[in-house]
């Protein structure tokens, strides 16, 4: 099962990527995806990270589906 993970601002700069595709097992939770991405990009660990699933804030416990859009970004700073 494949999901897309998007990066913005500081996380895009830290990873050098705007988006990646991640292969996950059936039944995986959003938190499993985020942990795997952070393991692949340990430079993300120095940031306070927020997560989203399909454009809503994620608590990390949602079961993912093929084609889901996930995002990893730092605490927001608009205004």
């Amino acid at each position: 099962m494949k999901v897309q993970v998007l990066f913005f601002g500081a996380t895009a700069e830290a990873t050098g990527k705007r988006e990646i595709e991640v292969n996950m097992e059936n039944g995986a939770k959003t938190g499993d995806v985020f942990q795997r991405v952070i393991a692949n990009f340990p430079q993300l660990q120095k940031h306070t990270l927020l997560f989203a699933l399909n454009q809503e804030y994620s608590k990390g416990n949602e079961t993912i589906k093929n084609g889901d859009e996930l995002a990893i970004f730092t605490a927001v700073s608009g205004g």
């Binding site: 306070t48 990270l49 927020l50 730092t74 605490a75």
Partner: peptide, 12 residues
């Protein structure tokens, strides 16, 4: 520098 705000949604 990218400014990082404060947020209650932070989970780590």
């Amino acid at each position: 520098t990218w400014i990082e705000g404060e947020s209650q949604f932070a989970v780590n």
